[in-house]
Computed example of a mutant assay.
Amino acid sequence: MQVNPNVGSMDAVLDKLYGKVGSPEREEFRKEAYSYCVGQLIYDARKQERMTQAQLAEKVGTDKSYISRIEKGAIEPGVGLFFRIIDALGLKVEIVKPMI
């Protein structure tokens, strides 16, 4: 297998753009990326359930604009709200200890 010299490491790209792992800039990027991923997960599940933001908000006890901000990755829901959203969308969270 030949190695393409034009293909670099994603870690190197992130280091260049956001600093080394553990730096404040890299941590901020990680938080934003996590918020975005959580928002997309919720958005996709809500669409699959054919539910509006207003309907989801009513089920979990918040308002439509808060759901919108979560889905856009602008904010992260607290743990309690996250679990209520997951439940309302018919999803399941499984917490397992990784095998080493």
Rank of each mutant, 00 (worst) to 15 (best):
M1R: 15
Q2G: 00
Q2R: 15
Q2D: 10
Q2V: 07
Q2H: 10
V3K: 11
N4K: 12
N4E: 02
N4A: 07
G8R: 15
G8C: 11
G8S: 13
S9T: 05
S9Q: 07
S9V: 04
S9A: 09
S9C: 10
S9I: 04
M10S: 02
M10C: 03
M10T: 09
A12C: 07
A12K: 15
A12I: 14
L14D: 00
L14H: 11
K16V: 05
L17H: 14
Y18D: 03
G19T: 01
K20R: 07
V21T: 13
V21G: 10
G22C: 08
G22Y: 15
S23Y: 15
S23M: 09
S23Q: 04
P24G: 05
P24Y: 12
E25R: 11
R26Y: 14
E27H: 10
E28Y: 03
F29P: 02
F29C: 03
R30G: 03
R30Y: 04
E32F: 14
A33G: 05
Y36S: 13
C37F: 09
V38C: 13
G39E: 05
Q40I: 07
Q40F: 02
Q40T: 08
L41E: 03
Y43F: 11
D44S: 14
A45S: 13
E49R: 13
R50H: 01
M51G: 01
Q53C: 00
A54L: 13
A54M: 09
Q55R: 12
L56W: 03
L56M: 07
L56D: 02
K59R: 11
K59I: 06
K59E: 09
V60I: 10
G61A: 02
D63A: 00
K64T: 04
Y66F: 01
Y66R: 12
Y66E: 03
Y66V: 09
Y66G: 08
I67L: 06
R69L: 11
I70K: 06
I70Y: 10
K72P: 00
K72G: 07
K72Y: 05
G73T: 05
A74S: 01
A74K: 04
A74C: 08
I75L: 01
I75N: 00
G78V: 01
V79A: 07
L81R: 10
L81S: 04
F82R: 07
F82W: 11
F82C: 08
F83L: 11
I85V: 09
I86D: 06
D87Q: 06
D87H: 15
D87W: 07
A88D: 09
A88G: 03
L89Y: 01
G90R: 00
K92P: 15
K92E: 14
E94V: 12
E94L: 11
I95Y: 09
V96W: 13
V96E: 15
K97R: 15
P98M: 03
M99L: 10
I100A: 14
